[in-house]
């Protein structure tokens, strides 16, 4: 079950503070990195919501992210809508597509669920790659950022945009945390723990899973809209399954089913990628080694390991009482 523990709250506040301090001390390049981390953190949170808490490991979150980006680009460039309407369109587009994927795939489990999501994602990728309306393989340039000058914010300034994305990442975390501690989130964890029993207790399970997947897709769509505005350009590459794979790596590296880990994983991966790339072209190998180390050391991920050690510290005193049960039962 999800609990917004003091440890989680502390970690979020620390990360948010670090992001703000970094934003005011770094240059243009650092701000680009920070923006990328914030955007990817939103998709990673979306992915952890379904994979970590709902047991639905998805290989289509890159596609949902890309659909959001294309929805924003289409609304603003092709239809001439404002940035706010474009963002709403991205959220709705990502959410609707994800709900559909969830509704169709909810009856499958494990590897079959992963394959179903992969198939949906690659279908979307192939569609945008071949569609002349959306620029085909060239993508769509000329995307403008949201105009918040009325509120005194200049999003065309890279610091302003980085902070804007950081705030939205925080809001995404708050939204996911609220949802996970609600009845909806509790039930989602129940489905992950024992789906047939949840059904036997009277829950229309597929509807719940589809709703969770749709919510996750809406968040991924929001991140896509931010990515489109960040680079002011969208391309089909955003939807490719390798993007989904990288998102899964972030979540697993940070700690699947910890929510904070998703944010941490996004940060670690982006910074490792750029820092290591300065020394060697083989940065993928470094990420791979870190991932292997993570999986072999219990699979808890960075934040999962922190929570584990923290919990052991707290539990050390009452431990003798807890073992009087029957530790031998499997």
């Amino acid at each position: 079950m999800f609990h917004q523990t003091p440890l989680k709250t502390g970690a979020v506040l620390l990360l948010a503070t670090a992001a703000v301090v970094y934003a005011f001390t770094t240059g243009f390049f650092g701000l680009e990195l920070l923006t990328e981390v914030a955007i990817l953190a939103i998709v990673a949170i979306a992915l952890d919501l379904v994979a970590g808490y709902g047991g639905m490991v998805s290989l289509c979150h890159g596609a949902l992210y890309g659909v959001g980006a294309y929805a924003f680009a289409s609304a603003t460039v092709l239809l001439g809508w404002g940035g706010g309407a474009g963002m709403a369109m991205a959220v709705a587009g990502g959410g609707a597509f994800a709900w559909l994927i969830g509704a169709v795939s909810a009856r499958t489990h494990g590897i079959f669920f992963i394959m179903a999501t992969l198939a949906f994602g690659q279908m979307a990728y192939a569609y945008f790659f071949d569609s002349p309306l959306f620029g085909g393989s060239d993508g769509m340039p000329g995307i403008a950022r949201l105009d918040l000058s009325g509120a005194g914010l200049d999003l065309n300034d890279s610091r302003g945009y980085a902070l804007f994305c950081t705030v939205l990442a925080l809001l995404a975390y708050a939204l996911a945390a609220t949802l996970l501690r609600s009845g909806f989130g509790r039930t989602l964890v129940g489905i992950r723990a024992n789906e047939p029993r949840m059904r036997a207790l009277g829950l229309p399970v597929w509807r719940h899973k589809a709703a969770a997947f749709g919510t996750s897709g809406a968040l991924a769509g929001l991140a896509g809209a931010l990515a489109a505005q960040h680079t002011m350009y969208v391309s089909p590459g955003l939807l490719h399954w390798t993007v989904s794979g990288e998102l899964l790596i972030m979540v697993i590296l940070g700690g699947l089913g910890t929510l904070v880990g998703a944010v941490l994983g996004a940060g670690v991966l982006v910074f490792v990628k750029h820092e290591v790339a300065r020394f060697t072209d083989h940065w993928h190998m470094v990420v791979g080694l870190v991932l292997i180390a993570t999986v072999l050391s219990g699979g808890r991920g960075i934040f999962g390991q922190i929570e584990f050690l923290w919990g052991r510290r707290g539990a050390r005193r009452p431990e003798p009482a807890a073992t009087e049960g029957s530790p031998d039962h499997a």
Binding site: T178, L179, R181, S182, G183, F184, L201, G202, H208
Partner: peptide, 16 residues
């Protein structure tokens, strides 16, 4: 989990 399901609280979006 069982009681919430029977009492229609399994899909509440805000309340725990």
């Amino acid at each position: 989990l069982s009681a919430a399901c029977a009492q229609g609280k399994a899909t509440a979006l805000l309340a725990d």
